[in-house]
Design a protein around this nucleic acid. Structure first.
Lengths: 336, 336
DNA sequence: GTGAAAGCGCTAACAA
DNA sequence: TTGTTAGCGCTTTCAC
């Protein structure tokens, strides 16, 4: 059983012909512009339905020179943070603005111009990006072509919505210090512009506590990369008694690496993640983590995007959200 | 510090004027069409760069009447199955076809015409949908407007790529039967067209084993809905000793509900999920689950989409993948 | 309340 | 190898 597809999708001209009015009227009717009699409007809708007419958003955007769609760039869909951001963005956007074009990075380990290009070429009106790995300068260049709202990362000169990573890292490290840990390691991500705050805060706080920071960097931001880096870290000499990771994916990687070596958590190793993803909350995982309020970040990003769309000349938005440490059962007093 | 945006984005006409050639040449140069001298081509690229020219995909699609973009409809980003499908699709699509427009449902509990409409109005060439909740008839109507590849669900008359849910459910239930369980409950999703196979298979297999099926249906496909349904199920009389759930999200919900009641897994309750999501594999979760090979489903869907695009008249694809039970530590012999 | 005509940025014959 | 011309489906003055 096959279904024959219409040869040529119906256009406004077809509808106009069917009803016996001009194309203009049809266009007006569909956009709710005043100046169409109710009678005509109804007749148009009726004919449209009969003909299976569908509004062509691309053609409309071209003709009106309006960039109506919102582009959403996400680094990695497997990381729950990004789906939360998406959900937040959607909550903030009104129905009308809900033409969301999503683009997901192909490379979690580095820059990815391709995904952004596709958004630019789709002529979106604004790009909400979580998380850009490109250098600040590149982000600013991008922002000259199309407005950008940077989420989870602050970029000077570009609308930014991000967590106070210094405060977040401080809460995490101080929690571990308070438990008596001294050999606290940090599992960082690859060091891109704007993604070093957690690491720097960790190192600074360790130093002010008179301790030596020990940082290892994973090759990208995935669970797997975290696990590889953790395996090395834990196998090394002077194994840390606690690890603070750049994100929850890494923390899950550390868990797997630790268990694979026969270590227990928090018995042999205390663990603090970052994101407070849904997985962290599961019984059996119970990961202590820094909640960066991803949904909230998304919501704010959405509203910032709307403001920018309405007023291209408005001052740059700089919205910093305070994250919150959520203590669960992956951390315990130091045994030593 | 603000960055001035260009008033009017450069067009091919601007580039042509700059170089002193016709618009056609510029168009040719950008699409790699033969018939442009290397010298001209280079001059064009150079000028384009200088002017900040960006190809306008929307205008190009309009003019060429080609529907180049691929629309991807996903039910729920928080469910790892769907990100896996996305990743699979992307693996299958060649670079050129990688203009992926993603649309995520707003309602995990029911139909969602809005998300599909936005894909239609964006004039995508094909929609890869995972998972459609609409009635079969509606999906077929949709497929008349634009080709559809239905993923994780078989729809008669529409290209479909899906797991053999009967076999998957059988493997799960027989595993539990083999462990000596007799009071095996099933946590089903809301009963939409095409989403009843797992449930029906469960009930049929229970009956052929001379047992009484006990099915409860959650209100949508999320962890939370699963947890609510599970709380009721486990609090009821004649508590089951094993639960087989429609998906892993539900299984995670059952876990939480069980632990909240002081039950242990698999001590008091054996649990089998469906999806074999990354979370299922975590130490501390160790969920026995039916692997439906989501990445593979996505890959096949991508290649089916390409075939359909190349040959609109080809026979309907019907690709059924055999899922695989992965036994972990959430199932144990029945105590009774 | 309605329509005619021009044009959005691009592609696609067809000429030259 | 290059240019000319005519649209794609829609919006938008501006006139009736």
């Amino acid at each position: 059983m096959t279904f024959q597809r219409q040869q040529r999708p119906a256009t406004q001209a077809d509808v106009a012909r069917e009803v016996g009015v001009s194309r203009t009227l049809v266009s007006f009717a569909f956009r709710g512009t005043s100046g169409v009699s109710d009678e005509t409007r109804l007749a148009i809708f009726d004919a449209a339905k009969r003909l299976g007419y569908r509004h062509n958003a691309a053609a409309a955007a071209l003709a009106s020179k309006q960039r109506t769609a919102v582009g959403l760039y996400l680094l990695d869909l497997r990381n729950e943070v990004f789906s939360d951001v998406l959900n937040g963005v959607r909550l903030a956007l009104p129905q009308a603005r809900n033409r969301l074009i999503l683009s997901v990075s192909r490379s979690i380990g580095g820059e990815d111009q391709g995904a952004l290009d596709s958004l630019i070429e789709a002529r979106v009106g604004i790009i909400i990006a979580a998380t850009l790995l490109d250098p600040d300068e590149r982000v600013r260049e991008l922002a000259q072509m199309v407005p950008v709202v940077s989420v989870t990362r602050r970029v000077e000169g570009v609308d930014s919505v991000y967590p106070d990573d210094h405060a977040g890292a401080r809460a995490a490290v101080e929690h571990l210090l308070g438990l008596g840990h001294t050999r606290i390691a940090h599992l960082a991500g690859p060091q891109f512009d704007g993604h070093t705050v957690r690491r720097e805060a960790y190192e600074q706080i360790m130093r002010s506590a008179g301790l030596t920071p020990q940082t290892v960097a994973a090759s990208d931001f995935t669970h797997e990369a975290g696990e590889r880096a953790a395996a090395e870290l834990l196998a090394g000499p002077d194994r840390p008694t606690a690890v603070f990771t750049h994100n929850d994916q890494f923390a899950l990687g550390v868990r797997e690496a630790a268990y694979a070596m026969g270590l227990t958590i928090p018995g042999d190793l205390s663990l603090v993640g970052y994101d407070d993803s849904p997985t962290a909350r599961l019984h059996g995982i119970d990961l202590t983590s820094v909640d960066l309020h991803a949904v909230e970040l998304g919501k704010i990003a959405g509203s910032v995007a709307l403001e920018r769309l309405n007023d291209p000349g408005a001052p740059i938005a700089d919205r910093c959200i305070t994250p919150q440490l959520v203590v669960r059962r992956s951390t315990a007093p130091s045994a030593s």
